[in-house]
Design a protein around this nucleic acid. Structure first.
Lengths: 102, 102
DNA sequence: TTTCTTGCTACATATTATGTAGCGCACTTA
DNA sequence: TAAGTGCGCTACATAATATGTAGCAAGAAA
C-alpha cells in the first residue's frame, strides 16, 4: 500500500501515505490517552486481526510514532503533538455530522 | 473497508473510517487549491486506477465533502474547513521528517 | 509444575486495488 | 456531415491486502 514514488519524498505525501493506510489513524487515536497492550489495542480497534495490527505497529514504530514500553504501546513525543490536530478533526467531525442530517 | 459498527456512529469514528481509506486523504489534499477534472485528479494521484478513484469520489460526494461542478471536482464548504487542519498536518510532517533523520 | 498473560505468527479464505481497454456523450473543427 | 477531442466513468482479469482462527514461545505468579 505504501508508495515508492518520488513524490512520497515530500513530508506531507509520506504522511498522507502513512495515515491513509487502514487502521493507522484509528490506532493513533486509540493510543491518545493511555498506553495499551497489544491485546487491549486489538479490542479497542474492533478486534482487528493481529496480523494487520502488528504490521501497522511495526510501521508506526519504524516511523518513530509509537513505541512499546513496559506499560504497553504508546505514542512517542512527536506523535503526541499530533494529538491536538486529531482533536480538531474530532471537533470538525461533529459539525460535519450535524450538517449531514439535512 | 468501511465499518458498520455501533462505534462508527460517533462522528470521529466515522471520520477516521473515511479518511483511513486508501487515497481519500490524498484526494482531499489534491483538491485543496483548485477544481480538477476526473482525469486531472487521476494524474495528480499517481495515475490511481479510475475504478478506485470513482469509488472514492462517490463516497466523498455521499459524505458531502466533494462535489462535481462545471469546473471539475471540488471540495464543499465544510470540506474547505478541513484545509487548515490539513495544513497543520503538513507543517507537523516537516518537523517529523527532520526528526527522522537521526 | 501448572496456569496466566504477554506479543506475535501461520495460513487458508475473502475482500480490495491495479492496470488496461474502451464506451457513450458532448462539443468543436473541417 | 463526419471526424476529432476530451469528458466521466465502467468492465474485467490479475495482483496485493485484510480477515479470522488457532496457537506458539517467553515471562511472571502460585
Amino acid at each position: 500500500m505504501p508508495n515508492n514514488n518520488k513524490k512520497t519524498q515530500r513530508p506531507i505525501m509520506a504522511l498522507l501515505d502513512l495515515l491513509g493506510q487502514k487502521w493507522v489513524l484509528r490506532i493513533i487515536w486509540e493510543l491518545r490517552e493511555a498506553p495499551l497492550t497489544f491485546r487491549a489495542l486489538r479490542e479497542r480497534c474492533d478486534q482487528i486481526s493481529p496480523t494487520v495490527l502488528n504490521q501497522r505497529l511495526s510501521l508506526l514504530r519504524d516511523a518513530g510514532l509509537v513505541e512499546l514500553t513496559e506499560e504497553g504501546y504508546q505514542p512517542t513525543r512527536p506523535c503526541q503533538e499530533l494529538g491536538p490536530i486529531l482533536m480538531q478533526l474530532s471537533d470538525w467531525s461533529k459539525t460535519w455530522q450535524n450538517a449531514r442530517k439535512d
